[in-house]
Design a protein around this nucleic acid. Structure first.
Length: 272
DNA sequence: CTGAAGACCTGCCTGC
DNA sequence: TGCAGGCAGGTCTTCA
């Protein structure tokens, strides 16, 4: 389901609902997500201190314990906070019950999501995190960093900005949107883009992600907030999902192509 | 090393 | 109506 803006929106929604709540029981309906879930019963008796995010991972911090529950939502993972006695929805795999009568539910139809317990002091060296590049909205991600990542590369620029080693959190939707705003053709080899245009692209990536976060994430298909409200950024898509429709900027027809097995949307009139 | 393709899994939409 | 085929927001592994 989610790219960085969606995960951040979920984090912001979950934090006030979970912080300070004590887990009194955990029910796993199935443990074979992308990887086998760890034994989550060890969390019973612990209080959630806060919810952080790194890349597209949610990090549930525990009070008085250096371990964190690290969770990736894959394509279709969802968290909802509901009263404990609410019946399990289809594809609900895990339920955390809290002392205040509420519960946290994890649903994931495709089961591409995964989770683990990681010591926060070893997070950076954990296999899921050790190779991750900078956060796109941090100063560490800038024109120089992007230029260095593109030097000598023949891979299409879209593939490069979706590579989590280069920068985290840029998924299939926002890659297309950022390249449209920067006027760069998604198939252009990374090494054949001027530094001035890469500066523009790094700015556009920050801009499009920040706007999406401000709008509360995109609401396509099954994305919803912890409280069940939809996100609104989908209304601002310039190219994603708009194949055969006219470009808002130049009127040319938006095209769709496949790159690295993923749909790419672009305007042949605006992007070169 | 790089880059492309396949794999994981289920649901939904389209077209015949 | 029924069914095959294509498609879906992510990431990891395999292969050339």
């Amino acid at each position: 389901m989610p790219e960085l803006p969606e995960v951040e929106t979920i984090r912001v929604g979950l934090e006030p609902l979970l912080a300070g709540r004590e887990i009194i029981s955990v029910v796993c309906h199935r443990t074979n997500l992308r990887y086998a879930l760890p034994d989550l019963s060890v969390l019973v008796g612990h209080e959630i201190a806060g919810v952080q995010r790194r890349a597209k991972y949610l990090l549930f911090e525990l009070e008085r314990d250096s371990r964190m529950l690290v969770w990736h939502l894959g394509m279709t993972g969802q968290f909802h906070v509901l009263p404990r006695n609410t019946e399990a929805a289809a594809h609900e795999h895990v339920r955390f019950d809290f002392s205040d009568g509420q519960s946290l539910r994890y649903r994931d139809a495709r089961r591409f999501g995964y989770a683990g317990l990681v010591d926060s002091r070893q997070l950076k060296s954990h296999p899921w995190f050790v190779h991750l590049g900078p956060e796109p909205l941090s100063d560490a991600f800038n024109a120089d960093h992007l230029a260095a990542a593109c030097t000598g590369r023949k891979a299409p620029i879209k593939n490069i900005i979706m590579d989590a080693v280069v920068v985290v959190g840029v998924g299939n939707i926002y890659a297309s949107e950022a390249l449209f705003r920067a006027g760069i053709h998604p198939a252009r080899a990374g090494g054949r883009i001027s530094s001035a245009r890469l500066l523009q692209l790094s700015d556009c990536i920050k801009l499009v992600l920040a706007e999406a976060i401000a709008a509360g994430g995109s609401s396509i298909s099954d994305f919803m907030h912890a409280d069940g409200k939809p996100g609104y950024f989908a209304h601002q898509f310039q190219v994603y999902g708009r194949q055969r429709l006219p470009c808002y900027r130049c009127g040319a027809t938006i095209k769709r192509m496949i790159q690295a097995g993923r749909s790419t949307f672009y305007c042949g009139g605006c992007q070169h």
